[in-house]
Design a protein around this nucleic acid. Structure first.
Lengths: 226, 226
DNA sequence: CGCTCTATTGATAAACCTCAAATACAGTGG
DNA sequence: CCACTGTATTTGAGGTTTATCAATAGAGCG
């Protein structure tokens, strides 16, 4: 798999040694698939970085309806600044596969920043990227039709978890119709119908919790113009 | 008007003197109503703080459909960290009334942070509050019905721009049905119908570009339970 | 092989948008 | 002060999109 980071690495500008030193100080944790790392509403004690595997970040509303805010993989952070304030986690983090994370508490972050000020800048960059992303998605949710949003969701997942295969690009995580719906702001039925249509067109191939994008370009065109 | 800030003040923890000194170094600008301060896509040279008046922050999609991301008033910031990177403004800022702003460029911010490190922390807090807010709204947009979202929009505006009057709380900015629609992710027609219904129930009183909330409690109940 | 979870598909209904037409309102210039 | 003009708003009719519900089929696992 290629090393594509959509955002600044937390350790950008630091040497491998410095990086290793910081990681050694962190709190390491291994998660089986479908384990909860932390839950929306819990006091935010630590922030985490994913080493391997993948986390699903979700938010629940009062009626218990779930929305997927994002999936994060190797090198990406969650709850980065929430843990700096004495706040509650604004969302729930759950592993979707075998996952290893490193966590630091408030003192750890402050220490880290003090020793390597560049980290504060990197943090700001990461946060800015997040705001940009969520604002973009807000705009899409507000102005675009369901099928278009589903297309964008698949493309996002492809970029962050895509694995090149002979038939196309496999989205390398267990992904149900319900997951796609929660990520796109629709229902699993609509997603199912949409994917069936795309499969007939030859744009994708799909199985149980598995999707391969066979015609990315068509999907991109559709997501932008339809 | 009361001094209600939903977010940390940029100058929290600083003395009035220090605050004044920083403000004096800024770039001051006076805007007539409906002036553009900066436009989505322009290179982000400065970030701004509102002194008096109010800015509308909007984002356009490729098809030219507009979404209102937020209104900001006295003490609030926009483009805070975008200007730190050499990026483009991700949205457009337009005054909705006579407005005075102070701006600082990248060098100004860095200088500010160096002299008063507390400002970096305040910045992080502000950014965090923003992320929280936009994620909340994303959840709402994704899971709630139009009328509920309109109710939430009115309540948000009430909290940030409410002015106590004898009949109720006036939202103190020129606010068309279209504006409310752009803020709630719907159309002006649906907003109009909704407001008419609420006016019949006695929850609000409305005129041309003007809305007074006469029964805030009912609206809150509705926004949470319906 | 049977159990459970996921996915498909169809029928129906609800929510909401689009478009058209009429009306109300605020300012402007005579 | 009044008519005029340009917006803003209201309301109705009709259509589209999408959700909901129900029933069935398929996949994986012990």
């Amino acid at each position: 798999m290629e090393d594509i980071f959509q955002e600044t690495d937390l350790f950008e500008g630091l040497s491998t040694d410095q990086r290793d030193k910081i990681i050694k100080k962190g709190f390491h944790q291994v998660l089986k698939p479908k384990s909860i790392l932390f839950q929306q509403g819990d006091p935010a004690e630590r922030f985490y970085m994913v080493n391997t595997g993948r986390l699903k970040l979700t938010k629940l509303n009062e009626q218990g309806k779930e929305v997927i805010m994002r999936y994060i993989g190797a090198g990406e952070l969650t709850a980065a600044i929430t843990s700096l304030k004495d706040w509650e986690y604004p969302l729930t983090a759950e592993s979707v596969e075998d996952t290893e994370v490193t966590g630091w508490d408030k003192a750890g972050v402050l220490n880290m920043i003090e020793t390597y000020p560049k980290i504060a800048i990197n943090l700001l960059n990461i946060v800015l990227t997040r705001i940009d992303d969520i604002q973009h998605r807000y705009l899409e949710l507000s102005t675009e039709r369901v099928e278009q949003r589903v297309a964008r969701t698949l493309l996002r997942l492809m970029r962050s978890a895509g694995l090149k295969k002979t038939e196309g690009i496999l989205i390398d995580l267990p992904l149900s119709r319900q997951n796609i719906a929660d990520f796109s702001g629709t229902t699993l039925f609509t997603v199912s119908r949409t994917l069936s249509a795309w499969e007939k067109k030859g744009w994708i191939k799909s199985g149980r919790e598995k999707i391969t994008i066979t015609a990315p370009h068509s999907l991109v065109l559709f997501s932008e113009n339809a």
